[in-house]
């Protein structure tokens, strides 16, 4: 059963909503799992302090409560401090979670970290990784095709990934009339378009 604190946060979540023109944004989770959060950050460009954070959630009570408490815990902290937050800190702050719901606190941390990484990559703060195909593929595995509820690598949408002199070429099997085509392309850009070292992103399609 849920703790009183989880119920309290579920009934009265803090920091719910969107930030217009956020400095960073990330969506984690998937429709298929029934667990999905979007995190919006406002970050002071000089001090790197998180001045504002908001979230939206599609998920169970634990999903809403963990994300809400996470936003409270990192607001006012620098991104370096925020990155040190662990899922255990969240479950502790909520007076524990049922074992089946621990993954919700992990999702809240993932969402935060991805948003911070997006910020760092865009502001030249991230150490450039040795860019290779497997890094790109692992990022693409976070893009979900809502139609089948699978990531686009597993779902066979990503047919080929190559990288040459910083130019990434993706070959996709994604029909023009695919219901979520635009969402998927947007997500791909969000996930890999800003990785340091990616100079160009070319997306090609297999003709059906």
């Amino acid at each position: 059963m849920y703790s009183k604190k989880v119920i309290k946060y579920f009934m009265h979540p803090k920091n719910v909503g969107e930030i217009k023109n956020p400095d960073a944004k990330a969506t984690e989770g998937s429709l298929a799992c029934g667990d999905m959060i979007t995190i919006y950050l406002k970050i002071d460009s000089k001090t790197h302090v998180i001045t504002d954070i908001k979230f939206k959630s599609y998920g169970c009570a634990a999903n809403i409560a963990t994300t809400s408490v996470m936003t409270e815990m990192v607001k006012g902290k620098t991104i370096q401090e925020a990155k040190k937050l662990e899922f255990k800190d969240i479950t502790k702050a909520l007076g524990g979670l049922p074992p089946m719901k621990i993954h919700c606190s992990i999702l809240a941390i993932d969402g935060l970290k991805t948003a911070i990484r997006n910020y760092e990559e865009r502001h030249g703060l991230a150490k450039p990784e040795d860019l290779n195909e497997s890094i790109l593929r692992s990022r693409l595995r976070k893009v979900i095709d809502p139609k089948v509820g699978k990531d686009i690598v597993t779902a066979g949408i990503v047919q080929n990934v190559t990288i040459k002199n910083g130019a990434v070429r993706l070959l996709l099997k994604l029909p023009e009339d695919h219901e979520f085509r635009d969402n998927i392309l947007e997500e791909i850009d969000e996930r890999i378009g800003h990785i340091p070292g990616v100079k160009k992103l070319n997306i090609e399609f297999i003709k059906q």
Binding site: Y2, G34, D35, Y58, G59, C60, A61
Partner: peptide
Amino acid sequence: EGEALLLYLSLKGIVATTGSA
């Protein structure tokens, strides 16, 4: 998501169920 829906209803004294994972 159905679990959140159910919890809210149960706090209102309504007992139901969902097919949510």
